[in-house]
Design a protein around this nucleic acid. Structure first.
Lengths: 205, 205
DNA sequence: TCTCCACCAGTGGTCAGACCACATATATTA
DNA sequence: TAATATATGTGGTCTGACCACTGGTGGAGA
C-alpha cells in the first residue's frame, strides 16, 4: 500500500512505530496499539504489521503477551546478542574484536571519569565492592554509567552481553584489583588508573 | 504446530534455519530455500516463515531479492551498530556524546595502530594527504580501517554519518596537522600521537 | 543456424479472513 | 457478597489469493 517504490512495507511500519513511540512519548513498559489497530491506522495488512513487530521483538525492543498486548521493553536484555553471536561469533577475529572493543571502551570511560566530579559515587561503588555486593559486570556497569556518555553506555551494554555469551574464563573476582582501580580513579591520575585497569584485566599492553 | 508449549513458531523457525545453514554448510551469498519450501519442510504456515525471515533480515543476517530468493549475507556487516543508531541514538540526540564518542574511538584506533605494523600503509596515507586527495573524513576512515577492529569500524561509520549530519563547523582542513599525526604514528609513541591528534581536533584535555 | 523476444514458472511482497489460545473485564448466578 | 459464566479484546497461526519481479525457455523471425 504505502510505498511500493523502494522500501518494504514492514520497514515503513518499523519506522512509523518508532515515530509513534516518539510522538506519544511512550516509555518502557507502556503498551503500544494492537496489531489490528496498527493495521487499520497505517492502512496495511495485519501480516505486514506482524512482520515488523516480530522483527522488533527479536531485537528485544518490544515484548508481546498473548491476550494482553504488545509492550515496549527495556532493551537491556535482548535476544539480539544470542542471535548475532550464534550467527557471527564463530569467527575468531570477531571474538577478539568484541573483547578488544569492550576493554577499550571501558578504558575510555575511565578516562572520562577522571575529568568529572564523581568522588562520592566512586566511594559508594567502593563500598559495594567491599561488601561483596557486586562482581565484575555490575562493577563496570557502574563505571560506564559514571562516564556519563549515553552512547558508550549503550554500546557497552551490547558488548557486555556479547562478552558474557562467549563464556570466557575470567578467573575469580579479585576484589583488591577493583578496589585499587577505584583508588586510582580517586587520585585522578590517568596513568595510575590505566595501570590498575590493565592489572585487573590482566592486559599486557 | 511445532512447539505449542512456550516458544513461538517463528522463533523455532529461526533456530531451524540456523541449524539448516550449519548442516548444509551454507556460506555467505548462498541461497536458502524459498519461503514456500521452508513452509512445507517445517510444516508451518508461510506467514510464520516470513516473520522469522523478516526478523533475520532486519538483523542483517539475510538478504531477500524479490523474484530471486533469500540469501545469506556476510555476517560481518551486521546491524549491531545500525540498530544502536536508529533506535537508541535517535532517542537521545546527545550531540555532545556523539562528538565525544567519535573522538575517543578515533583515539582508540590510533592506539591500536601503534601496536601494529602499518608503516607502509601509513606512508601511503601520507601521500594522499600531501597530494590533497583526501580530507578529514576519509583520512580517519583510513585510520579506523588500519586499526583492524571491525566493530570499531562499524561504530565509527555510524558516528561519522551522524557527525556529518550535525554540520558542525570543523574549520579548514589543515594539512600539516594530519601530516604531523602520521609522523607521530610512525614514531610509535603514544604520547606524541595523542598530542598530535588533540592538536588536530583542537581538544584541550 | 542464430538471435531476439514473448511467455511462463518460481520467488518474494502483501492482503484478507478465518480460527485458536489466552487474559481481562463484565454480567450472571448461587 | 462471592463465585462462576460469558463476552470481548489480544496475540498466534494458517490458508489462499493476488501482485511484482527475475530468470530461463522455447518459438518466431532473420
Amino acid at each position: 500500500m504505502d510505498a511500493p517504490f523502494h522500501n518494504k512495507v514492514y520497514i515503513e511500519i518499523v519506522k512509523k512505530i518508532r515515530y509513534m513511540i516518539e510522538q506519544d512519548g511512550l516509555k518502557k513498559g507502556d503498551k503500544i496499539p494492537s496489531e489490528r489497530e496498527l493495521s487499520e491506522r497505517l492502512h496495511v495488512g495485519r501480516s505486514s504489521v506482524r512482520e515488523a513487530l516480530r522483527a522488533l521483538e527479536l531485537l528485544g525492543l518490544i515484548e508481546t503477551r498473548r491476550g494482553e498486548g504488545t509492550f515496549l521493553r527495556d532493551a537491556k536484555t535482548n535476544r539480539l546478542v544470542e542471535l548475532l553471536s550464534s550467527f557471527i561469533l564463530q569467527d575468531e577475529k570477531a571474538i577478539k574484536d568484541v573483547k578488544e572493543t569492550k576493554f577499550l571502551i571501558e578504558m575510555d570511560c575511565l578516562r572520562l571519569i577522571i575529568h568529572k566530579k564523581t568522588d562520592e559515587k566512586l566511594k559508594n561503588l567502593m563500598k559495594l565492592v567491599q561488601e561483596d555486593l557486586i562482581q565484575d559486570e555490575e562493577f563496570f556497569l557502574n563505571i560506564v554509567k559514571l562516564a556519563d556518555n549515553h552512547l558508550f553506555y549503550r554500546i557497552w551494554l551490547i558488548l557486555s552481553d556479547f562478552y558474557r555469551s562467549l563464556n570466557m574464563d575470567q578467573g575469580p573476582f579479585e576484589k583488591r584489583n577493583y578496589e585499587a582501580l577505584i583508588e586510582a580513579l580517586l587520585t585522578s591520575d590517568e596513568k595510575n588508573v590505566l595501570e590498575a585497569y590493565k592489572k585487573l584485566r590482566k592486559l599486557s599492553i
